[in-house]
Write a protein that binds this DNA or RNA. Structure first.
Length: 488
RNA sequence: CGGGAUGUAGCUCAGCUUGGUUAGAGCGCUCGCCUUGGGCGCGAGAGGUUCGCAGGUUCGAAUCCUGUCAUCCCGACCA
């Protein structure tokens, strides 16, 4: 059959072209690849096994790094008494519109409302106050893997749902400097997991005042760029100063015999990161999962002929070999035609397909097909001696990981623009051209004007590079560089 | 929360304007045959407690009216 015919066949009929409507494509992929299902509750999703597999990959990569940097996991309650929540004024005010409340228990009205945690600074802070006595108790380095709830107006799978999964780290330190270092350390971990594991290139930096976490002195984040030119905040890390310490009485006896308030931090990454993975890497055939994130790194599809068990036997033997080599492999023995299986696993984004048929066995080979390459693309399909399959797969997975990142990086870079005059800047912001990088004054009023006229806001800021003198948006003296973009 | 749209089989949808016998199609699913190197090989079959839910109009409602819930798009909001 000709390549021409293959081109014209709809590859995955359930999924519309990505470029036509990203939102429609995104939802189709989320549902058809069985990552999530809509739940019978408004704005909530069920994370299905395959989606949970992605989450587990992310979890294990992050968790390992948290442990390596001295953090321990713990668990704090879901409910927060209102009287505790209101103690940090800025914090409550910031979260008020998104908090869900429990007002009844059993058949009785509660005397005090209980907030379902939108984040846990409060409960954790209260406990830290109880546990912390001496500078010898510091630092406190705790993380928890939990669900949180925020009553959002508009929801989308992974990107924004009422209930979502995340991890939140909460630490307390003796000095501002240590707390600041912690915040940067965790931001670095987020950046490296996003880029090296999830394959999503990001810009890291500090949030502007208006984008800051309620109750924080400094908020840092990593920001990724989606194919439609909107930015996605993928993780945050906050310096909370002594704000929460003062509100919740987190203090200790210092070495110099004075009583001091601790310096606290918090940092989090949610399953939203998976939304970025889906949008950044996916194509018209569905998901493309970077190998390090893939619940299944390679799938073996046996090409079975009638009355021949030897192909099945060989496939099973290969499965055992590959598993033995430490690979996450699956053998697809479903009673479907091979083409069907091909498209199915492609839609699910499995990085490598191993085809094994009678001809291969006779020749002592297996056929490997990469998900990151187009059909017919150079290097997309390889015939490899059976004895070398495990080694070749390992190498190919690395190459696929690098290739997906390279593609995403090229997109980010080609969509990072540096307009030099005001009208061009506004135009680029309006048309969602990408990350619009300018010298910026840092003034809230300037940001508000840009937002009102273009819906773009600052994503992250960083120090000036030298040489810039004025803000491209308003002409005031430049104080920093900032990426502007419309965001999710 | 404002503006717009949509809810009929597991999925995608037709039927609704001009109410009226047993509510349809394709895909999927099940069973058999075929035997599988890129998706629609052949045949048979099941599946809607009756059209999101609740009221109303009517002799009669998937179809008209009201309300409600949910989803999608645009906007506002969004640690």
């Amino acid at each position: 059959m000709s390549d021409d015919k293959i081109e014209k066949t709809p590859l995955v009929k359930e999924i519309p072209p990505k470029a036509r409507d990203l939102s429609e494509w995104y939802q189709a992929v989320c549902y058809k690849a069985e990552l999530v299902s809509l739940a019978p509750v408004r704005g909530c999703v069920v994370l299905r096994p395959y989606g949970f597999g992605l989450w587990e990959r992310l979890q294990s990569e992050l968790d390992r790094r948290f442990k390596e940097t001295g953090h321990e996991n713990a668990y704090f309650p879901l409910l927060i008494p209102e009287s505790l929540l209101v103690r940090e004024a800025e914090h409550v005010e910031g979260f008020a519109p998104e908090v869900a409340w429990v007002t009844e228990g059993g058949n009785e009205k509660l005397t005090e409302r209980l907030a379902i945690r939108p984040t846990s600074e409060v409960v954790i802070g209260v406990m830290y106050a109880e546990w912390l006595q001496s500078y010898r108790d510091l630092p406190i380095l705790i993380n928890q893997w939990v669900n949180v709830m925020r009553w959002e107006k508009r929801t989308r799978p992974f990107l924004r749902t009422l209930e979502f999964l995340w991890q939140e780290g909460h630490t307390a330190h003796a000095t501002e400097r240590e707390a600041a270092e912690e915040v940067q350390r965790m931001l670095d971990i987020y950046r490296s997991v996003a880029q090296d594991i999830v394959g999503v290139p990001v810009y890291a930096g500090e949030k502007s005042e208006s984008e800051r976490f309620p109750g924080a002195n400094h908020t840092f984040s990593i920001e990724a760029l989606m194919p439609d030119g909107r930015a996605l905040q993928a993780a945050t890390s906050h310096e909370l100063g002594q704000n929460f310490a003062k509100a919740y009485d987190i203090k200790f006896a210092a070495e110099d015999q004075t009583v001091q308030y601790a310096w606290t931090t918090s940092w989090g990454m949610s399953w939203r990161m998976l939304g970025a993975l889906i949008m950044v890497h996916g194509d018209d055939r569905g998901l493309r999962i970077p190998p390090k994130m893939a619940p299944v790194e390679a799938v073996i599809v046996p090409i079975v002929r009638a009355g021949s068990d030897e192909v099945v036997a060989a496939a099973r033997a290969l499965l055992a070999t590959l598993k033995g080599a430490g690979l996450r492999v699956k053998l697809d023995e479903r009673d479907l035609r091979p083409g069907n299986k091909f498209s199915d696993w492609e839609m699910r984004g499995v990085p490598l397909r191993v085809e094994l048929g009678a001809k291969d066995i006779e020749a002592g080979v297996a056929t490997l097909v990469r998900r990151d390459k187009e059909k017919g693309e150079e290097g997309g399909k390889l015939v490899v001696p059976l004895a070398e399959v495990a080694a070749r797969i390992a190498a190919l997975l690395e190459d696929i990981q690098a290739n997906l990142y390279r593609e995403a990086r090229a997109f980010l870079e080609s969509h990072t623009l540096r307009p030099s005059d005001r009208s061009e800047f506004f135009e680029r912001c309006r048309e969602r051209a990408g990350m619009i990088d300018i010298p910026w004054c840092g003034l809230e009023s300037c940001e508000a004007i840009v937002k009102a006229e273009t819906s773009a806001t600052t994503r992250v800021t960083r120090p000036l590079e030298g040489g810039e003198s004025t803000c491209v948006a308003c002409g005031e003296p430049a104080a920093m560089r900032a990426f502007f973009a419309q965001s999710y």
